[in-house]
Design a protein around this nucleic acid. Sequence first.
RNA 1: GCCCGGGUGGCGAAAUCGGCAGACGCAAAGGACUUAAAAUCCUUUUUCCGGAGACGGGAGUGCGGGUUCAAGUCCCGCCCCGGGCACCA
Length: 861
Amino acid sequence: MSDKPIERRRQYPYHEIEPKWQGYWKANKTYRQPNPGEPGFDPSRPKFYVLDMFPYPSGDGLHVGHPEGYTATDIVSRYLRKRGFNVLHPMGWDAFGLPAEQYAIKTGQHPAITTERNVNRFRQQLQRLGFCYDWDREINTTDPGYFKWTQWIFLQIYNSYYDAETQKARPVSELEAQGLSRDEIDVRRLAYVAEVQVNWCPGLGTVLANEEVVDGKSEVGGFPVERRPLKQWMLRITAYAERLMSEMETLEWPEGIKRHQREWIGRSEGAEVKFKVESTGDSLTVFTTRPDTLFGATYMVLAPEHPLVDAITAPEQRDAVSAYRQQVASKSEMDRTALAKEKTGVATGGYAINPVNGERIPIWIADYVLISYGTGAIMAVPAHDDRDHEFAEQFGLPIRLVVQAPEGNTDQCFCGDGTAINSPLIDGLPTQEAKRKITAWLEDQGLGRKTINYKLRDWLFARQRYWGEPFPIIWEDGKHQALPESALPVVAPPLDDYKPGGTPEPPLSKATDWVEYSETARRETNTMPQWAGSCWYYLRFTDAQNASRFAGVEAERYWMGANGKTGGVDLYVGGAEHAVLHLLYARFWHKVLYDLGYVSTIEPFHKLVNQGLILGEDMQKMSKSRGNVVNPDHVVDEYGADSLRLFEMFMGPLEQMKPWSTKGVEGVYRFLGRVWRLIMDSADEGESWRISEKVKDVEASPAILKVVHETIRKVGGDIDSMSFNTAISQMMICVNELTGAEVRPLSALAALLQVLNPFAPHLSEELYERLTQQFTTLPKGPLSEVPWPKYEERYLIEDSIEIVLQVNGKVRDKMRVPVAATKDDLQTAAMASDKIKEAIQGKQIKNVVVVPKRLVNIVVI
RNA sequence: GCCCGGGUGGCGAAAUCGGCAGACGCAAAGGACUUAAAAUCCUUUUUCCGGAGACGGGAGUGCGGGUUCAAGUCCCGCCCCGGGCACCA
């Protein structure tokens, strides 16, 4: 019992035809897409840019989740090519990053070696699935020819500042021209160095961005993360908060992702209000979204790290305050959030004066106030804020009602909109008006102003790792300095020991010769985070080989061109897990490049689609520990690539989460076998296949014409709306119809292969080739170059149609009527039906509803 | 706690506009072919009641209401599942 049983079960020779066509496509560069100006480029065709989120080539190889989105984009690409578009459909590798380095440390192999091996494996696996990528555009973020431009873009960011006036990035050379000093310029750069509280992850030996920390643990690996102050490279993404928010409006993105980004940016309108510190006369600024509740402020809270804490603290509270601050500082981020159930804090013994009523209120410090948001200080209104309420209850602080809740509201602590009370300046005003009036009053008095705050923080851009892009920066006399463009790429030196040392000292600092740039200058030894390479890869694809620019001007303009939409990649497909990180960072870089005139659109990705997760057969998330992982290689071995592709699309809607089913794969495999046998016949158990005698070059019957043209119509429409599952259903209906027919007209089979081609490219190519060998009337192949068929309305129209006859909404009879039947005709015909007569006998007709082409409903009592 | 997404046969699902609920596939059952099996082809398959049968009747899209001649689809109130956010003042 060797593999004989499998041999025998094989529905069609996919094991021969799939490698055959893959070889053909490769040898003929079938899917190479020339750029404008290159030989073979056809400027008369419209363009379409279809992009997959490029994978991180892990050591595990492809899993069945990868081909889901890739198959969807492959179908769209093949379809649009047949529809006469120039289609850009590239693939590459996001290969820098932690897992490769972790793996390298574990196995003692250099990450460059393991990365290359993984990439080769991924490429080979993808090619086995027959995807129509233009492999001449393949990119790899770890390739010096690629990251040269990642570093170059960093330099553009470094050499820019954000001009608040025009809301645009501008070169810092303009500031120089204005006579600003070096230090003044450095604090305005979009890439800057600052001493900040960072997320230090000892487990990974690096700092992490806020976005990479989940529940106080690292997103990669789940190691604990500590807060500690560190001097770090930051990117001023906050300058773009407003534009990242507003310029998203016209994008065709899932609402959920847009909302997610909005929440992460966290725009909130409010006011800054100045309180005077009683003892020192210092002014203490708070941010509030509810200036209308100022009269209800019964105490203030500062973040423990607030710079004025020492000055404010009264001598008798000094010990308590410093003990509390120490306790907070030693807490990890996780402890701080985990203990959120109970509020902690301590009074400073200092007092502030409420600017609206001159009231003296105590100043506390508590870790529920964050130093990194707003001004790091709040006015506490315990009557109308849940957090303040909880704190006040705990420490016995007074609670004063200043907003009358609407009738019927029973909230213990009402936080919504109501009417101002106990607030002399604004009594009786509804919340929104009260906010406006009190803010205007504060501005008049010079006590405050309207402000907008964002949750978004600047992007911590440095990592203490080896396997990432080095910064094109040197340090001299304690100051950073950009390397000239001619020094790019800055390539990391080979290192024997690239392990993290447990301190924030990056591994690159061990390469002493490399670090020593000159007698007086040292190189920056941090590297860029993994996100850097993926921030602009979609641009590189437009002109992947360009050695003199990140992408040629014309290529970028052509492929990213707007076509009347927002512009950018026309269709971008990938997982929802990148909702915040990648998409936000890439949009930010793109906008900087746009401001500086390097790219032509304000946004990188016009339409975004998230594919749903594929679960294991047990309805659980696929994971090695559960043992429910499906390996695509095995599926291809047993059923062929076309079956895998077809099944991934047939399972259900692309965006939906859905479980794997081996039986389901067998189902579509059988379907492909039926397609094969529709055309091919074998006398001797599949040994020698020849074209079936039932295939004839004759006129198709009306019934066959109808189903074929309906299939052309439906499949095209379904690809447009990315409803691949229903497109496949329709093809199955078509095949069922043809299977039952005595004669299988050539034209019908050719049309079927046409529409099947984007889904099952190998099988359809092979069958088409065999048909063209016997029937020379068919347009010459390869099928991938034969235009998409047109359906003809006239074959779809029927002269009679079945309508439903209802009595009180219940179906009582059905009948066939001419399509052109009028309402009156239908009503008359319905009344003539015996079953209807019986159903309405002895009852009074109250109303008759006639819907042409659908139904007649007789309402009786 | 807050914000999303989703509940339709034994299972995955379908149902542009409110107009025959369950297309298509899986599984299951029966039949044809075969010495036999596999494969293939054909038929049945939401459920309950009546009938030997063709067939007839009732119920049915998480639950309870509502709008409508007509509701899976629209409105109100709940329940359950999945995901995300979580002291952002």
